[in-house]
Design a protein around this nucleic acid. Sequence first.
DNA 1: ATAGGCCTGGAC
DNA 2: GTCCAGGCCTAT
Length: 263
Amino acid sequence: MPEGPEIRRAADSLEAAIQGKPITDAWFAFPQLKAYEPTLVGQTVTHIETRGKALLTHFSGGLTLYSHNQLYGVWRVVKAGEQPDTQRVLRVRLQTAEKAILLYSASDIEMLTPEQLTTHPFLQRVGPDVLDKKLTAEQVRERLLATSFRNRQFSGLLLDQAFLAGLGNYLRVEILWECELAATHKASELTEAQLDRLSHALLDIPRLSYAARGKVDDSKHHGALFRFKVFHREGEKCERCGGIIERKMMSSRPFYWCPGCQT
DNA sequence: ATAGGCCTGGAC
DNA sequence: GTCCAGGCCTAT
């Protein structure tokens, strides 16, 4: 479950479980991280930061654990000593007196010094995070019109973490549906009103998904705060215009849209 | 801009 | 077993 809102919610629950609590045991599956196990015992997690889909666990000693869940990584919070039955392979375990946090399946895990935080290839290239409260629609609008972004098709642009961090495939299709825009359009072709609408949706839709606290509805379940309009709805009727939702690969991910109103 | 590779888990 | 996926990197 890995787009920006899901990663930030995971970070919230990890923080709630162990932030500020002395670490009683640390365990890493990867050999290159083994040396940090004794180092971390007695330290605390000061805070857990997210930059788009990257999650940064900051320790009181100054080190930071970088993890990226790609499509498959998953964080769990359990009681100390517990390890739930799962087919997934355990990669990280940080334990405190009461609770432990576990990272399963992720393959992209590194320990970074403060210096390395500023030179890490992914962290260095990501753009502003759509969930950052300080990021405004006006700033997003300027970014859309920046020379390096204004002539790129939305299909690729919205997946590029260098443009904005935290968007992924479901957000890209839902944002473009919301704005009635085709995937082949570019910022340079939009009217002022369209630019305005898009710059707001680029922030509002991820924030709405985050606020839904996981109640993202993939299958027409009632009462969900955030309901997909086109994602995984190929062949269904568009609720805005009645057109039939289509699907095709774009920028090597499945793209869903309504040909009736996204023009 | 696009294709292919990498990684992992789930659906079939 | 095969293929796909809410991701990302590198090579072309």
